[in-house]
Design a protein around this nucleic acid. Structure first.
Length: 911
DNA sequence: GTATTGCATGGTGGT
DNA sequence: CCACCATGCAATACG
């Protein structure tokens, strides 16, 4: 396991090299275990700070160690327990050694302490250089022998978090002000578990900036610095910044802070760890684990590989010391939890892209300089190895890191939005392992938002089976790492139980669908729908569990819900029509009230009728009365004569029937009235054109023709990408005939399609018309023969339409009686005629919409229309069709473009 | 027509 | 206010 890079920190460099490969032209990062992945300039390994790497690596060792055996004497060592007082040291080639053995083999390396240099070459560091002799609660400063990277400090195994929680916090001993390289703090039994960090006497680390603003380390002579920074870096920085928090709460540790705060300038900021941790609100969920003591599940801030990137707590891997110890011990390896992330809908979707937190990606994944990134091999909990593409996208002068190709892995692990994936590293080996944690209904106190995602998003109520999976409510089930199974296979959390839906969103969703569903149904048919709905619901939404028995009363069909949701009083809606469906839009949220019927009396006055819940009699109410969901005659304060159920019904069954009918009419009228209000804001020509194009064939249906609102495009919301919204702002865009914008292309495309359709229809009509002509001709001949020729039948087609030119003239004929003269046999005139006819439609629409005065558009249309209509010959109004509308759309659009052109030209001339 | 890819946008949370 | 990131969407590739 030799390394050509250096024996900086045990196996860290090896692992980095093995697992990740070195960046071209550079050396490995400091310590991969702890996330120190700062790059080193090629050949500049001597700038590497064994001290720092030692600190961090040992930190993780402390976190993760379990019982081991000394590689030299096979003596059992519990590296994570101060009580054992076993002195040990991690060996770069794996395993640990008791300190006596290590020291024996290391004595010759702790020499020449007066030599501040780091004459280390990449090839001079090898496995022989045993590093980091650990002494409990003591930190050894070591120096570097020639040709070797030596650790100048020793992170001493403190104690497990349990012990540490009671440990004094002032034992973070540094070598502040002590340049004596020979300081060899010794560990005394009974010392508290806090590690003491001894600073290298003559050297410190500072940040320098390499390419990409990535910090690197440089060794500077400490004697040159007046302000000698402390080596201590607090773990419990209450601000959450720059801290390695209290991982396990037991250590004094440091963390590179990046450019802003060089780590070695933090000495004065050394702070107690665990207490701070508790105060900072880090998640410490109590875990109830079978056979084990409860232990805080701490969101462990992982080693920060890039000082400038501070991992948000939500990404801190959560794992207990017990888990780590157990795992590490069982596996005889070190599991380094790196980070975790709650899968979003897009992460878990088919797109196969997992968005990585930027800080995490930059801290723990290889540095990538190109957007294409590089392949990343990750092993899942089942031992399968996946290769993802780790890459980034430029984003707002930043980067957005993604793992591509994760779909198979996500599916293999049966992960969904809301579940959590964890990234860890197995040491030695540096293998990246992707674990997962199924979502639960618990809410994490640390990052409620994240958990909310989890809860709402997955809509799952996973029950955690056995062991530490049985978490109390409110705890976060962080099964990042689990004990090896019977086969010794590493199981990173994997929830053994397939996810299943229980209550909550599933029921809610179905309830929204108007279904009455059982809570525990697992209808796979709906899985896709559920996913979709889950996404639509909003992951953060907190919804009432409709599936609860207590909420049974709320189970309603959609229509029932609509009836209960009353528009707020005195608020008039906007009427919009989307695909033939009329909607009312209110600016104010609806109120929850009793269903009533609105109608209009014979005098035209608006009325409201409500049915008593007790006697089912209908009572007349003021139109603005708002009733509670449950209402009875007794609450009829408006009509005291009928404030009792004993009062006779005002309506007979027949009257009630009329009432219902009139209610519909009332609604219809209200829609029209509102549409009129809407039409006060005359749509721009282009808007109308677009609306025509959008509404297409449905626009001129007999029913809709009376409702001018149908031509009003729905009120748009931000993000609307409809054909109307995508057009340039009114007046700012003028579409030329050659314009290829979406509006134009859509209109043209539809026109083309419809024209083809029309040709087909017309061919049919031709045959039909020919037959009729033949028939009429026969009749005329018969009339002539009979001496009674009828002029009226001379043009039967004209009569068939029931219209004449006069009727069509100004488009003021009744709705649906516009003469759409277009002889189907005249292909050369088809388009033109269609357009002409559509002009009628246009006008007609404007008339209906405006309900009165003509608009400029209308007048313009009318003028053109009048001249056009005279050219028209009779044709059945049934030929009014969508293609005409579209044709009109196109023509009108062009026409308006022309108008705009002229207008602009006129303006130019005037100016 | 569907899937993939790359970028843009806007909401949200942290500072 | 700003960075992050979830997601939409257009462009492109592919079947």
């Amino acid at each position: 396991m030799g390394s050509d890079i250096g024996m900086v920190n045990g196996s860290c460099v090896h692992e980095w090299k093995k697992g990740w490969g070195l960046r071209s032209g550079g050396f490995a990062q400091l310590c991969f275990k702890c996330g120190f992945m700062e790059e080193w300039k090629s050949g500049n390994l001597d700038t590497l700070s064994p001290f720092e790497s030692s600190v961090f690596c040992n930190k993780f060792h402390r976190q993760q160690t379990g019982w081991r055996e000394c590689n030299f004497c096979n003596k059992p060592i519990h590296s994570g327990c101060v009580v054992s007082k076993s002195l040990f040291e991690y060996l770069d080639f794996g395993g640990i050694g008791c300190v006596s053995c290590v020291n024996t083999s290391q004595l010759n390396m702790i020499r020449n302490t007066e030599n501040p240099k780091w004459p280390v070459s990449s090839t001079q560091n090898n496995a022989r250089d045993i590093h980091s002799a650990h002494f409990d609660s003591g930190l050894f400063m070591s120096n570097v022998d020639e040709g070797k990277l030596m650790q100048l400090c020793r992170v001493v195994e403190a104690s497990e978090s349990i012990h540490m929680s009671h440990a004094p916090i002032n034992n973070m001993i540094t070598s502040n002000g002590k340049n004596n390289p020979e300081v060899r703090p010794s560990f005394r039994e009974g010392d508290t578990g806090f590690s003491n960090v001894i600073k290298p006497p003559v050297q410190s680390l500072t940040f320098a900036t390499l390419e990409n603003n990535r910090p690197t380390w440089e060794i500077k002579n400490m004697h040159e610095s007046n302000a000698r920074p402390s080596l201590n870096m607090c773990l419990g920085n209450p601000s959450g910044n720059n801290s390695f928090p209290p991982s396990g709460g037991e250590t004094t540790d440091g963390r590179l802070e990046g450019k802003v705060s060089p780590p070695f300038h933090q000495g004065p900021r050394s702070r107690p760890i665990l207490p701070k941790l508790l105060k900072t609100g880090l998640t410490m969920n109590i875990e109830t684990e079978k056979g084990t003591l409860s232990q805080p599940r701490i969101a462990r801030p992982p080693g920060d590989g890039r000082g400038k990137n501070q991992l948000l707590p939500r990404y801190w891997p959560r794992i207990t010391d017990q888990e780590l110890e157990r795992l590490s011990g069982d596996l005889k390896s070190t599991v380094v939890p790196l980070f975790e992330k709650v899968l979003s809908a897009s992460d878990a979707g088919r797109i196969g892209r997992l968005v990585l937190p930027k800080a995490c990606a930059e801290a723990y994944f290889p540095h990538i300089t190109h957007s294409e990134g590089l392949p990343l091999r990750v092993q899942d909990v089942k031992g399968n190895e996946w290769t993802f593409q780790f890459r980034f996208w430029p984003n707002n002068n930043s980067r957005m890191y993604v793992l591509e190709g994760v779909t198979p892995c996500i599916q293999a692990m049966d992960l969904r939005a809301g579940d959590t994936v964890t990234f860890s590293r197995i040491d030695p080996g540096g293998k990246l392992v992707m674990g997962f944690r199924k979502s639960s209904n618990s809410v994490d106190t640390q990052d409620a938002s994240t958990s909310a995602h989890s809860n709402g998003g997955s809509a799952k109520g996973d029950t955690f089976s056995g062991g530490n999976e049985n978490l109390p409510s409110g705890s976060n089930c962080a099964d990042l790492l689990r004990s090896p199974n019977a086969n010794g296979e590493l199981r990173l959390n994997g929830h053994p139980e397939p996810s299943h839906l229980v209550t909550g969103a599933a029921g809610l969703l179905k309830a929204e669908n108007g279904e009455m569903t059982s809570n525990n149904s697992l209808d796979q048919k709906n899985s896709a729908l559920e996913k979709k709905r889950t996404r639509n619901i909003g992951l953060k939404s907190k919804r009432l569990l409709i599936g609860n028995d207590d909420s049974m009363e709320l189970r309603l069909t959609w229509e029932e819900a609509q009836d209960l949701l009353r528009p707020p009083p005195s608020v008039k809606p906007s009427i919009v029509t989307i695909e033939d469906q009329v909607f009312e839009e209110y600016d104010e949220p609806p109120v929850f009230g009793k269903r009533t019927i609105f109608s209009a009396s014979s005098s035209g006055a608006k009325e409201q009728w409500a049915q008593c819940d007790d006697c089912s009699k209908w009572r007349k109410l003021p139109v603005d009365a708002l009733l509670p969901p449950n209402w009875a005659c007794l609450e009829n304060v408006w009509d005291t004569s009928r404030s009792s159920c004993s009062a006779p019904d005002e309506l007979s069954s027949r009257e009630l029937e009329n009432l219902l009918k009139s209610s519909k009419d009332f609604k219809k009228r209200r829609i029209v009235e509102n549409s009129k209000l809407i039409q006060e804001h005359e749509p721009s020509g282009l808007d109308a054109l677009a609306s025509l194009a959008v509404l297409g064939e449905n626009l001129l249906g007999p029913a809709d023709s009376s409702a001018g609102a149908t031509t009003k495009h729905p009120r748009h919301r931000p993000g609307c990408s409809c054909i109307v919204c995508i057009q340039p702002p009114s007046g700012k865009g003028r579409h030329k005939p050659t314009c290829t914008c979406n509006v134009c292309t859509t209109v043209k495309r539809r026109f083309k399609t419809l024209m083809l359709r029309k040709k087909k229809r017309q061919s049919e009509r031709e045959a039909d018309a020919a037959a009729k002509k033949e028939h009429i001709h026969k009749r005329v001949e018969e009339s002539d023969t009979n001496g009674g020729a009828s002029r009226e039948v001379a043009n039967p087609l004209e009569n068939e339409g029931g219209l004449n030119k006069g009727q069509v003239e100004v488009g003021e004929s009744s709705a649906g009686k516009i003469d759409l003269n277009c002889h189907p046999n005249r292909d050369d005139l088809q388009v033109d005629n269609i357009a002409k006819l559509s002009d009628h439609i246009w006008e007609h629409i404007n008339m209906n919409q405006n309900g009165g005065p003509r608009t400029v558009n209308t007048e313009m249309q009318e003028g053109q229309h009048s001249s056009l209509v005279t050219q028209s010959n009779g044709e059945d109004t049934r030929y009014l069709s969508e293609e005409r509308c579209i044709a009109s759309t196109v023509r009108n659009k062009e026409r308006k473009d022309e108008v705009l052109n002229h207008s602009n030209e006129s303006e130019k001339n005037l100016s």
